[in-house]
Each structure stands twice: as structure tokens, then as C-alpha cells.
Design a protein around this nucleic acid. Structure first.
Lengths: 115, 115
DNA sequence: GCTATATATAAGTATATTATTATATATTAA
DNA sequence: TTAATATATAATAATATACTTATATATAGC
């Protein structure tokens, strides 16, 4: 057995979660930087509750973890998830999304949650 | 660049498609055997139109191709799809589903579309 | 304690998804 | 040409999904 195997039903659940442009982009960004909610709100053209709801789903599936830092809640990939290997493999096929964070910096929007 | 990159929006569309237990299982089975519709109907506990509709979606996305053989239409993975590499990578993480075809053979149900 | 900020949750709504049943189409074989 | 089989499509209904707005909670700083 070369790679870790994931039960097909669980895999489908994870893929369905990742089958949303916003969530997939979030996960790709988190692969290189931890982020707080407000950064995602600035990146995506949608409301804060919508972002929170996406993050909740990712958290419920165990794909991400949250850490409170003062007022902010920092999200990161959960490297201990049983799905981490399959997700990592997937992400390798996606183009880097860091330019989205760069755009924020240029607009001076990525200030709020810098500690 | 080690692996082929897929635009994030397209990737999300493909992952959403694969984020369904039936479709994901179909694709995993097709990875080792071409199949006709009637085999899938026998494998999954659902109606023939439901199967046809799943296959239609996979076909529309370019993930599978169909070949008519007499009365039967044989589905196979489309190895020329731009998504084939990412899908292959994914499938490596899933347990083999050939036992489902085996079960059919044992029940004598995998007869119809044998040429 | 009060106010501001960051985030989460609840309720409601519009839309998408997936199944079902009924029916159409294509092929084979008599 | 007719009947049987395999498959596709159409219409519809149940359910799931992803937003929105309104509100609640948690922390920071005064």
C-alpha cells in the first residue's frame, strides 16, 4: 500500500466539501498561510457569515483547526486529519492563490489581524 | 512544475461531481474495468434513470466517454481529459471497489452486457 | 462597566441537486 | 414489422446547499 486509503463514503463527503470554489480556494490558501476570518472576508466577495459558515463546515469535517489569538480566530490546515494526505495531493494540482493575499496587502487591507 | 495544474474553478466543479458516493464509486470502478449502464444499475441500489443521469454528468464534464457496443453502451474513463491526472491521483487514495463487480458475478447478474 | 471589533449562530429564502415515474429512442432478433 | 432489451430524456418532487439579514457572543481597550 503506497498511500493512505480513505473509505469511499468519507472521501465523497470531503470531495463534496472541496467542490465549492470558495472552500477550495480557502484550503489552498491555508496550505501556505494561516488566515483569520477577516482576511477571507476581504478576499471573497461575500459576507462574513457566509465565510464563517464555510469555515464551520471545514472544521466539522476536521480539515481545519482554529486557534484564538486575542480577538481573532486563526484557521489552519489540520495536518493530523486522516484526509490530510489526500487533500495535499489534490492541492498540488491547483495553482497557487497567494496573489489573493498580495492584493489585500497592496490595498492595505491585510492589517487587521496581524499580531 | 511537477504535476499538471488545473484552474481552481474547474477543479471545484470536478470535485463537486466526485463528491457523490455513487459517482465516485463509478469512477473508481471504471479505473479498472469499463462498464455498461446495466452493471451500474445492478451494483447501486437505485433506478436506471438515476444511473444514466450520473453518467451524463460525468460525460458532460469530460471525465468519461461512451462507446456503443450493440445494445449496450460501455463507459470508460477518458484518459485524455485535462482532469485525468488529478482524478488518478485521487483514486489512489480509495480502496478498490472491484468486489462490487465480483458480487454481481456471484449472483450471476453480470451477464447481460458480456459480448 | 461600556464600546468597538471579530466572529458565530439563527432564521429565512432562493437555488441546486438527486431521486422518482413516465416516456422516448436505439438496437437486436424473431 | 414487431417485440424485447438497453439506455436516455422529461417532468416533477423532496431535500440539500449557500447565500442573506439580524442577532448573539467573545475579547480588547478605555
Amino acid at each position: 500500500m503506497e498511500v493512505s486509503k480513505v473509505e469511499i463514503e468519507k472521501a465523497a463527503t470531503i470531495l463534496k466539501l472541496l467542490g465549492d470554489k470558495s472552500r477550495l480556494t480557502m484550503i489552498k490558501i491555508l496550505d501556505s498561510h494561516d488566515c483569520c476570518v477577516c482576511e477571507f472576508v476581504a478576499i471573497f466577495n461575500t459576507s462574513q457569515p457566509a465565510i464563517s459558515q464555510h469555515l464551520r463546515k471545514l472544521k466539522d469535517a476536521g480539515l481545519v483547526i482554529e486557534t484564538r489569538r486575542g480577538q481573532w480566530i486563526i484557521y489552519s490546515l489540520n495536518k493530523k486529519s486522516e484526509f490530510y494526505p489526500i487533500v495535499q495531493n489534490l492541492l498540488e494540482h491547483l495553482p497557487n492563490q497567494d496573489f489573493k493575499l498580495k492584493e489585500l496587502e497592496e490595498k492595505g487591507l491585510r492589517i487587521s489581524c496581524e499580531s
